[in-house]
Design a protein around this nucleic acid. Sequence first.
DNA 1: TTAACAACCGTCCATTCGGTCAGTAACAAG
DNA 2: CTTGTTACTGACCGAATGGACGGTTGTTAA
Lengths: 199, 199
Amino acid sequence: MSTPARRGRPGYDLESLLQVAVKLFNERGYDGTSMEDLSRKLGITKSAIYHHVPSKEELLRLAVDRALNGLFAVAAETESFEGKAIEKLEHLVRGSVLVLVEQLPFVTLLLRVRGNTKIERAALARRREFDRLVTELVKQAETEGDVRPDIDPAVTARLLYGMVNSLIEWYRPRRGSAGTELADAVCKIAFDGLRTQGG
Amino acid sequence: MSTPARRGRPGYDLESLLQVAVKLFNERGYDGTSMEDLSRKLGITKSAIYHHVPSKEELLRLAVDRALNGLFAVAAETESFEGKAIEKLEHLVRGSVLVLVEQLPFVTLLLRVRGNTKIERAALARRREFDRLVTELVKQAETEGDVRPDIDPAVTARLLYGMVNSLIEWYRPRRGSAGTELADAVCKIAFDGLRTQGG
DNA sequence: TTAACAACCGTCCATTCGGTCAGTAACAAG
DNA sequence: CTTGTTACTGACCGAATGGACGGTTGTTAA
């Protein structure tokens, strides 16, 4: 059923190890977490970690790639859409929130990468590509008259995703919560504002 | 005039050193920056740094305290205000954006603190206090009928400041830019949304 | 029973880390 | 020239870091 009867000695595999690692990286920061810290948390020795993964950085790479793949999957889905740009934009935002919620630890790690190594810089490059995509959509929606023209589209786009991405700072999954409610809240405030609608 | 003729051997003082340090901390992350890295950037030896500051953490403390003092000054100003809660809230947001812009490097460092040490935890505690203040204001504004009641005020508050704080991720000061325009943009989108208003 | 398999341990290593300390260099005022 | 003041150097230290390596233990399938 849930356990497909794995061969060999039981213990961590790469997946279960990655979960713990990413969680710890988020708590103390990637650079602030030593492999000793991680091994202590796992309950195994440091050298055992290197049986599963060739380096500390590889753990980071696996995590941020998972986050980026999730986000780009939503982006691809959005692009193959018919309709007005503002509808595409809302779809992208909703999808992004859902990815944030479902892959919270991975996305959290991604959004904190600073570009110290080749791998981190590659992640930043993909992030920028995603941001460009959002900006283009906002621009188009403005051209179509659905987004307020009194603010630079690039600024609007960044504020929008600033709000979306800030979820990682405080959102914590509760059992039974679908994430769609959260996406609703984000879309309401981002698109129509927190003020009571006059009308 | 601009130089009040300092005594002693010329070079860095605590202030000028702090500027460079905080900038580097923001580029590579606090944990990702060694005192050797910093000394290289400064053009002096590592031990020279310890003439100005007793420890690496003290640099962090000085920086985050400066950011927190700026934010709490605005908060105090806001509390001594007369008027509706929503007006207070807008004043707080505007003031926060201005502090963010004027003290960008310090606030940036503050918002990335993870709580690994006593000093970091103290900073996080003060941040939470500030967040409580914002939430209370949003709640009150909702009671007064000025903030949409269909979203949990705590969520609204967090999304609002998620947007505000996201400025540190992309805003870079340009000469001649006052920051008030940015505050305008933030308030417009946060309070009234990015969608074109149905007149 | 045995072979394949996968997870794990103990020991070791070169390097880097934050930090110390005793002394030196460069300036201003008297 | 001296004195006070401030910034800096170079050599050093114990601890922690990411990682290497050869050997071991526990589990399943044949």
